[in-house]
Every structure is written in structure tokens, then in C-alpha cells.
């Protein structure tokens, strides 16, 4: 069976060409000027560009607020869904998962149109509410998954040993469900920090997020600056994914 390992070769070549090389190219372009000479100029430009810095800070702020709100609203929902005494219906679970399957742009557009019709001024408030709409299912699903599979005997044991229900929740269930929360944070924080179309829809182009700035630079052929900004984003993503290390097993199995 061992020579079967060569079967991975086509995909290995594919990965090098379409995954590794493009990422290397981001780095190469980020450290070059328009003429192809090595420079730190693109990063210097970013740190001097107050507009870009402010947008960057705002993106992080929006992403953190969105993630926090999703945990706050999503954790209780996931907890109720996983609790057989409080919720027997499988349909509610499907209803919470389903938005993940619908095109995000469509859902965002529908949300923006609803705000518009209700006469709500589009701005930062609608941006955050709209994002919570978009990403809440991605927080609920991993937390629900881990709570649902959690061995119930831990909670029973804690109760037998005299813990109050409140203590069982905070000292047993919450710590055990942390991997689910971390996957949820990954699935919410990263897309929010990098989104571009969604923020434009929800604020009627009034508020720009970091993704929009990257897109504008790439589209107006400022590839080097765009690549430098992408690299800044990659660093943020890298830092966030350190949170996750090898607790990945919760994410699979959506089908």
C-alpha cells in the first residue's frame, strides 16, 4: 500500500502553485515598490496614512464588538438547544444552522433593506447589528456541537458533590465548552475583520472597513500597497489563530 503515497503528488504540486506561491507573492509584492525594488515604503505609508490606521482600528473594534455580542447572544441559545429538558425540537436547531447555507450577500442585502424600510439611519449601529445577524449562527453551531456531545456525567458528578446549578454551569460546563467558543470566535472574528462588501451594504458606503481599503487599492492597481495591507491583515489572523492551536475537531461535520 505504501507506494500509494505518490497519489498525493498532484495535489501537492497544486497546493504549492495555488496556495504557497500566492502567499509568498503577497510578501514579495508588499516589500517592493512599483518598479520592483526592495522597500519598506509600503508599510511606512500605512503607518503615516491616518485614514488607513483609523479604518484599521475601527475594523478591529467592530470585529471585537461583533464577536462579543455573538458570544453573549449565542452562548445561551446554544446552551438551551443542547439541553434536552429545555428543547426537544430538532427543527429549531436546523433553523439556527440554516442561515449558514444562504449566500451571505443576500442575507446582508435583505437586512439592509429591512433597516431602510423601517427608516433606521444606516451607520455604525446598523453595521454591528447587521453583522451579528450574519455571524450569530457561526457562533451558535460550534458551541452547540460541543455542549451536545459533552458527557452529562460531569455535571451530575459536580451536583452530587454539592455544587449549586450556578456553580455547575460556571465551573464545569463553561470551561469544558471553551473549545467550541474558540472555534466560534475563529468563525466570527476572522470574517468580520476581513469583510468588505458586507460593511458597504450595511452602511450605504458611509463606513469603510479594512477589507474595503485593500480591495480599493488592488482594484486601482496599487498592488504593492494592497499586498502590504493584506500582510498586515495576515499578521492579525495569525495572532488570532494562535488561540486555536490544535482544538480543531469541533469545526467539521456540518453536512
Amino acid at each position: 500500500m505504501s507506494k500509494r503515497s505518490t497519489w498525493a503528488l498532484p495535489y501537492a504540486i497544486f497546493l504549492v502553485l495555488f496556495v504557497a506561491l500566492p502567499l509568498i507573492l503577497i510578501m514579495v509584492y508588499a516589500f517592493q515598490d512599483g518598479a520592483g525594488n526592495f522597500t519598506f515604503g509600503n508599510f511606512a505609508k500605512f503607518f503615516r496614512d491616518t485614514d488607513a490606521i483609523n479604518t484599521f482600528a475601527l475594523s478591529l473594534e467592530v470585529a471585537i464588538e461583533n464577536t462579543a455580542l455573538c458570544i453573549l447572544l449565542g452562548y445561551p441559545a446554544a446552551w438551551i438547544l443542547a439541553n434536552k429538558k429545555l428543547n426537544k425540537s430538532a427543527v429549531t436547531i436546523v433553523l439556527f444552522i440554516m442561515p449558514m447555507w444562504i449566500n451571505a450577500l443576500m442575507r446582508t442585502l435583505a437586512t439592509a433593506e429591512l433597516f431602510h424600510m423601517l427608516g433606521i439611519q444606516l451607520g455604525k449601529g446598523t453595521l454591528i447589528v447587521g453583522m451579528v445577524y450574519d455571524y450569530l449562527p457561526f457562533m451558535i453551531y460550534p458551541i452547540y456541537n460541543i455542549l451536545d456531545r459533552m458527557d452529562k456525567s460531569y455535571a451530575e458528578a459536580a451536583a452530587d458533590l454539592g455544587a449549586t446549578p450556578w456553580q455547575v454551569f460556571w465551573k464545569v460546563q463553561v470551561p469544558l465548552s471553551m473549545p467550541g467558543v474558540i472555534s466560534g470566535v475563529m468563525m466570527v472574528f476572522m470574517p468580520t475583520v476581513s469583510t468588505f462588501a458586507i460593511s458597504e451594504f450595511l452602511t450605504n458606503n458611509k463606513i469603510k472597513l479594512f477589507g474595503t481599503i485593500i480591495q480599493e487599492n488592488i482594484n486601482s492597481s496599487m498592488w504593492n500597497y494592497g499586498a502590504a495591507l493584506s500582510l498586515v491583515m495576515l499578521v492579525i489572523i495569525g495572532i488570532t489563530s494562535l488561540l486555536q492551536d490544535n482544538k480543531k475537531e469541533v469545526s467539521g461535520g456540518i453536512v
Binding site: V19, A20, P22, L25, I26, Y29, P191, I214, M233, S241
Partner: peptide
């Protein structure tokens, strides 16, 4: 070799769409 290919395989799933998009754009330009 297995570790390396698994790592590369994870990258497109961890990368935000915009990074995948920009990096492939640069590849095709290059």
C-alpha cells in the same frame, strides 16, 4: 511530508476570503 501537506491543506480554510482572493490575483498577475 505528511505534516507539510496537511499544513498547506489547512491554509485555504484558515485564510479569510479576501486574502485568498488577493493572493490568487497576484499569482495570475505574476
Amino acid at each position: 511530508a505528511k505534516q507539510a501537506i496537511s499544513l498547506l491543506n489547512n491554509i485555504p480554510m484558515l485564510n479569510p476570503d479576501i486574502i485568498t482572493g488577493v493572493s490568487l490575483f497576484l499569482l495570475f498577475v505574476f
